[in-house]
């Protein structure tokens, strides 16, 4: 357990089969785990509560971007000093949280992105890899910072970053919008390699429609 108060934020929509283990693993490292239930219709809330997470529930589904935004505010309300965001589908290994937040603890970064592509043995499906590389290039171009995996949901950030984040996207476009917005305000952004596990039965993430929206947001910054 770290000296700083680390709060983990996990957005979840119908993740009853995985949320419990993700919360339990995250709790071994974080002081508090907040699950943002984004209008789930299954037992996500019950499972997360049983695993001793603090659950914040949206009464309707707003999208992963909005869920994260709610989670960041909830983390701030709980006096978080460092906030980590994780996916609820076991794609990310909570044991890697110390690596992701290390640059923040060392005072070298304000936002750390856990990059799935930096990892040499990345299991990212080919189609996703290509889409991700294109979006990362576009995000890097718009932000002026070399970002290898702009769509990664595994991120660490300091409290002052979380408090100053302003993005309007409620869905997958939040990932790029956050980077572009923070880079333009001079925050230090770095990426670290992370391992990722992909399950064929539950592949989600940014699709073609999201890619178009991300491109639109990059061309029309708010």
């Amino acid at each position: 357990m770290l000296l700083l108060k680390v709060v983990c934020v996990i957005p979840a929509h119908n993740e009853e089969s995985t949320i419990s283990s993700v919360v339990r693993n995250a709790r071994t490292i974080c002081n508090l785990v907040i699950v943002v239930d984004d209008g789930s219709t299954d037992k996500t809330v019950e499972e997360a509560t049983k695993a001793k997470a603090k659950v914040v529930s949206h009464i309707i589904r707003l999208g992963v971007g909005a869920a994260l935004s709610t989670g960041l505010r909830a983390a701030s309300n709980h006096d978080a000093e460092i906030i980590v965001t994780l996916d609820a589908d076991e794609q990310h290994d909570p044991k890697e949280i110390p690596n992701v937040i290390a640059p923040i603890v060392d005072g070298k970064a304000d936002l750390v992105i856990g990059s799935r592509i930096l990892e040499k043995n990345s299991e990212m499906p080919f189609q996703k890899l290509v889409a991700n590389k294109i979006l990362s290039k576009l995000t890097s171009f718009a932000s002026g910072i070399e970002i290898k995996d702009s769509q990664s949901g595994f991120r660490g950030m300091s409290r002052h970053v979380a408090d100053s984040i302003k993005y309007e996207s409620t869905d997958y476009q939040w990932a790029s919008e956050m980077i572009i917005s923070l880079s333009k305000r001079g925050f230090r952004i770095v990426d670290v390699p992370i391992k990722t596990v992909y399950f064929k039965s539950r592949r989600r993430g940014a699709g073609f429609r999201d890619a178009i929206k991300i491109l639109y947001n990059i061309l029309h910054p708010k």
């Binding site: 529930s57 949206h58 009464i59 309300n77």
Partner: peptide
């Protein structure tokens, strides 16, 4: 979005 987020936080 704002209303749903505010409700969620207040309820917690």
């Amino acid at each position: 979005t704002k209303i749903v987020q505010q409700l969620a936080l207040e309820k917690t």
